[in-house]
Simulated scan of single mutants.
Amino acid sequence: MSICINEREFIDDLVWVKYSLDEFQFGLSFFLSGKVRIERHGLTDETDESVGRYYLECNCDIKETEWWKAGEKFSRIYLKIEPQEFFQSFDEEELEQIPISLRQALIGDKLQPYYHQGEITQQMWTVLSNILQCPYQGLMKRMYLESKSMELIMLHFQQFQEQDVHNHRFPARDLSDIDKIYQAKEILLGNLENPPSLIELARQVGLNDFKLKRGFRQVFGTSAFKYLHDYRLEKARQLLVLGEMKVEEVAFRVGFDSRSYFAFAFRKKFGLNPKQYFQQRQKSV
């Protein structure tokens, strides 16, 4: 684990587009001052990250667009975790106590995108203050900060469990519904060329369409087919970067029947039409 204290202030309004294809971030971010609006394409709609809030993220293969306001000081404490090393010390029974949607992010050899936002509690504020005012140096400082980091992780898990119990996200008796939401996502991403309708998708995972729509937005921050649309475009971009397929083949591979609509949607998301993007990437190789 590592702890970073970030502070930023811009003299002009800024729109910052970031690609995270070669590295990932997994950790907890606590906002101490300021505000930024961020869209994690294919994972969340635009969300405000501001003082008093925090999130747990697994940011891998996700494009981000950030909107920063001039003259606003932004500061946060970021706790970065190496997930495979951190969680390998947990036995099977202990892993069962981790929020199921987070466990989904850790299944398999490749990390899966994940995002959950919460409120900084009074206990969290106390721990964050302790980190900022750490009275030790050397080895004692490292031990102190490690203990405070573990305390923040524990408080996050505690808040997540309390939200379930108090029905803020899903009733405790319906935790299996979250598994069904993730199953629905996998079905969509496994059928890019011919995805099922919402009603058929709901039937396949054993939910009614209303619970699927509501649940998908609660878990992923967007609708099922907006998620699919953004995933298709991101997959298309990656295929164009590889340069092994023509534009028409890429469009068909990710499920666009109309080349003109594919070009329109791609240009709207990335600022260039597919052919221009392909040519630009080939020149930079």
Score class of each variant (00 low, 15 high):
Ile3Gln: 07
Cys4Ile: 13
Asn6Pro: 02
Glu7Pro: 01
Glu9Trp: 01
Ile11Lys: 10
Val17Phe: 06
Lys18Tyr: 02
Phe24Val: 00
Phe24His: 11
Phe26Leu: 03
Phe31Asp: 05
Ser33Phe: 00
Gly34Pro: 00
Glu39Ser: 07
Arg40Cys: 05
Arg40Gln: 08
His41Pro: 11
Asp48Gly: 07
Tyr54Glu: 02
Leu56Ala: 07
Glu57His: 04
Cys58His: 03
Asp61Cys: 08
Ile62Met: 03
Glu64Thr: 07
Glu72Thr: 10
Glu72Val: 13
Phe74His: 10
Tyr78Asn: 13
Lys80Phe: 00
Lys80Leu: 04
Ile81Trp: 00
Glu82Met: 00
Pro83Tyr: 02
Phe86Gln: 09
Gln97Phe: 03
Gln104Glu: 15
Gln104Pro: 05
Ala105Arg: 08
Ile107Cys: 06
Leu111Gly: 08
Pro113Trp: 00
Pro113Met: 01
Ile120Glu: 08
Met124Ser: 09
Ser129Ala: 09
Ser129Gly: 12
Ile131Gln: 14
Pro135Ile: 13
Leu139Lys: 15
Met140His: 15
Met143Cys: 15
Leu145Arg: 12
Met150Ser: 13
Glu151Ala: 15
Gln161Tyr: 14
Asn167Gly: 09
Pro171Leu: 13
Ala172Ile: 15
Ala172Glu: 15
Ala172Met: 15
Leu175His: 10
Asp177Lys: 11
Ile178His: 09
Lys180Val: 00
Lys180Arg: 09
Leu188Pro: 14
Leu192Gly: 07
Pro195Tyr: 07
Glu200Val: 10
Gly206Asp: 00
Asn208Leu: 06
Leu212Ser: 11
Phe216Gln: 08
Gly221Cys: 08
Thr222Glu: 11
Ser223Thr: 15
Ala224Lys: 03
Phe225Met: 05
Leu233Ile: 04
Lys235Val: 06
Arg237Pro: 03
Arg237Phe: 05
Leu240His: 12
Gly243Pro: 04
Met245Thr: 01
Glu248Thr: 12
Ala251Val: 06
Phe252Trp: 09
Val254Ala: 03
Gly255Met: 07
Phe256Trp: 14
Tyr261His: 12
Phe264Thr: 08
Ala265His: 12
Leu272Pro: 02
Lys275Ile: 08
Lys275Gln: 14
Gln276Glu: 15
Gln276Asn: 13
Val285Glu: 09
